[in-house]
Amino acid sequence: MANSNSDADTKGHLVIIPAYNEAQNIGEVLTELQKYGYDVVVVDDNSDDNTAKIVEQHGATLLSHCSNMGYGVALQTGYHYAIQKRYDYVVQMDGDGQHSPEFVKLLFDTLEEKQVDLVIGNRHTMVGSYKVPKHRRAGQKLFSSLLRIFSGLKIEDPTSGFQALRRNVLKFYVSDLFPDDFPDANILLLCHRMGFKVVEIPVVMHESSGVSMHRGFWRPIFYVTLVIFSILVGLFTKLPKREDEN
């Protein structure tokens, strides 16, 4: 893995992978990513299995949480790392094999060529993606509609965690406003209100092999309610001034 950047003055591309008990899949994901030569940081959210060991064996940078904090906090640790090491472009992806490493380059390229701040990988338009269960698709459509109503943003896959971000977005994401409980469609609304340019590109996603956090009957209902509430809160949240506008 090409973790060659020194702490002094580095600029470049970084892939952030939050991981919790991903020993089964993380090795394959890292092996795939090695082909592209990007710097990779894996944030191990206090896994019980040997995720950390596998990450170290693959030569990727490992950040280990000393207690389990959840997906959002793990992501934010990665953002802190990217800011600290002065990365300009970041792609975040899951470590369970759901996100195809072959699309990482496309996400980075779109970020740079289209001069946008945030690129979202949309799993719904490209042939080859797994079929999203109907109830989850309904939730995604609901979030998508709410985003369109409240911001005018036309995002078909607002729950996609496969995203590319520019440094100015990272600076916003390390603030206290980042909804680390459920960084979902609500964060896109905040990004829009911050004036960040958001685009969506088609990517292929595979079905996650792990146990879904949205399993059961009440969990998804609770989650959808929380995200809707969070979107509504996002309409009134007082936002900071963008640093790159100073």
Binding site: V43, H65, C66, V73, Q76, Y81
Partner: peptide
Amino acid sequence: NQRKATVQQTALLEER
């Protein structure tokens, strides 16, 4: 929030 900051800082410092 304080625990989150501590856990994140610890992870970053450990790596350094």
